[in-house]
Design a protein around this nucleic acid. Sequence first.
DNA 1: AACCAGGAGACAT
DNA 2: ATGTCTCATGGT
Length: 214
Amino acid sequence: MCKPSKQGVRGFESRRAHMMQLYRELLEKHGRQEWWPCRTKNRFEICAGAVLTQGTSWKNVEKAISNMAGAQAMGAAKIAAMPMPRLERLVRPSGFFRQKARRLKALARFVSSYGSFAAFAKNATRDALLEINGIGKETADAILLYACGRPYFVVDAYTRRLLSARRMISGNEEYDEIRELFEKSLPRSVPVYGEFHALIVEEGKLRRSNPVTS
DNA sequence: AACCAGGAGACAT
DNA sequence: ATGTCTCATGGT
């Protein structure tokens, strides 16, 4: 049952075509972003970055990451065992430092409970991540995609604006509807998801600094 | 000198 | 379900 109607099939193919076209267009315009993939051997650093960047510019996050790395503290076990005042001091430049220190610690304990990062990356579920206080949908998906190498598309405010500007969504869709739109329209590829989201962010930043150039 | 970043949670309506 | 407030540092 539920064999797709011609309308449904055409609608699906059309969305997929638009999505690929958008990807190509952004890729040509901005070039490859290569956010985290190979540059970072430490995958916990990606998890930390996902939390630290909540509501703050990446520039500030880099300072906090640099502090943690400089203190030999960029690891789940180290963060899990670190006294809060010390952790707060390290992440202070990223803003919201008290709650971010708490969130990092909760995440570090969760990762540590798997015994190894590899075990965490393989077995942690999205729902389990979402139960951690301070890990919402966007942060969870960013961790799953960029740190765990799993095919979850990351949706942010730029993504909504861009898609509604292109009339690919109406604008009032739920987070997960938009995520599934990407995941169903694109080949199930971690590098593609990662690059596409990064490109959308880059495009969003450009639009902000220069509101008039389409 | 406001304004705002690669958000999320708590709370009121 | 949908708004509004808070969290906080550093760059335009």
